[in-house]
Amino acid sequence: MKTLVTFMLLLCSVFFPDYAFSRPILADVMPRKIDIDHNFKGVKVLVYGVQNDVGNVVIIVRGPKVNQILREKGKVAGVWTNVTNLKVKDFYNYYSISSTTELERINNKSLLENLEVGLDNINFQPVKSRNILSFNDAMGLKNEALRLMQSKKLYSENTNEILYWGETLFKTFIEFPKNISKGVYNIDLYLFNDGQLQSFQSLPIIVDKVGFEEFVYNSAHENSLLYGLVCVLIAVALGLLVGLFFGRR
């Protein structure tokens, strides 16, 4: 793997010397597509590139924004049950950040907030709900949401995990766990210097269910009635078959 990467980086700088060196940061990703099949156990994606200018590199992988429900359990009449149900709008279902330095040292808080760089800067938009007392209470649950996503390995923050060869070539591995959802993910590379954004590049990576799994999942969601009929027919057919074999005994 390592030699392959080195080789590809060299190849990159040989064939595209002007292009590579004219931009402050240039990177690529391998593989560009992740297939979820029946024995998918998660995958590590390699991001590698060239940095041609001084500054700190931050690599963020963002999954699609989806609506999520955060629930809190409490004791009601001796039984533990969900007492708070908070709907959160447009919350990344995957977020991984890797950087060459602590984010505080980039020293431009509002810029990082705007770009949603750093777990704390991810937008958290609670939707009004009956059992939440106030907006502040709802916002107070943001840390719980971040913690849960981290424990599911869907959110992660890695400092100093971007490796360098010499001054300019860098690489890092980003882990996509077994429980990722399908969708288009974006790998965003930022180069910060002196509290300013020097350069930016975005690479898409597609996560898709393939083969039989995709077929089943899509059928269930898009042709629900037909899928249900097939489920019933399979069960009836199997039952009849077994009945013919063993029924008369």
Partner: peptide
């Protein structure tokens, strides 16, 4: 046990489809 004892994790988060 799940009903009557305090769960180790009080919070859950899941995606909703609408």
């Amino acid at each position: 046990v799940g009903l009557f004892f305090e769960p180790s994790e009080l919070f859950t988060i899941e995606q909703v489809f609408e």
